[in-house]
Amino acid sequence: MRQTLRLLREFLRACFVEEVEYRLNFIGHLLTTGLQLALAVFMANIFFFRADSVGGWSFYEVLLLLGVFNAIHGFIEMVLQPNMSRLVQHIRKGTLDYVLLKPVDSQLFVSFRHMVFWKIADIVLGLGLVVFALVQMGAWPTWQAIVSFFVLFSAALCLVYAIWMMLMTLSFWAVKVDNLSYLFMSFFDTARFPVSVYKGFLRLALMYLFPVGLITTLPASALTKGVSVWQLLVAGVLALAFVALTRLLWRLALRSYTSASS
């Protein structure tokens, strides 16, 4: 565990040093993120110009959800996207062998080696929007609500990571997964709104099949509508199960990879 944390810190440091080289990127990125956030808020405004609530959520509740969305979106762009595209390249060009030869956990290495450091601004600003929405609503959450938010938020990060990791692991079996990441990001846009917006089958699919409902709606609910212990439990167990599943799939993939290339 300590080894894992040390590695993660080292990866973060390495990517920071790498990116300081492009300092305009930092300012540029901050600007981009800020603007995108402002435009997202503006977009919510447009929907609320004609309605007091969307799917039973008030304006500030939707803003809070947008904050969660932005933070998780930032996490994807900071950590998942850069590493996963490299994994695909590694497999395609056969350079994965070098990774496998390193004396560290290979899944950890391919998942976190390259991060786009500046994207951390997305996460910070997203959480900032959550706080802003809370202040505007004037109802400060109980500490139970805050704890369950962080539990659900962590579960959401685990879920997103697991889904990405599984999609990318598919590339071991010669699927063009770069496209899957594009599809994922397209469908992930559905998480900008509470799942109650979607009707019928679509809502079920977004809750359980492609669980964006669990990823943004549920953490946001913890601070607004409240969540039951039952929901907490399900989300936690599901997140752990998903991560365990990636572990299994990774092992399986490595086995087929090493037997194929020898």
Binding site: V17, V20, E21, F26
Partner: peptide
């Protein structure tokens, strides 16, 4: 060409002064 030195702190410095 931008001159850069190795090391963490010099890279921080190069954010502001290059």
């Amino acid at each position: 060409v931008h001159e850069r030195e190795a090391g963490f702190w010099s890279s921080v410095r190069s954010l502001f002064d290059r």
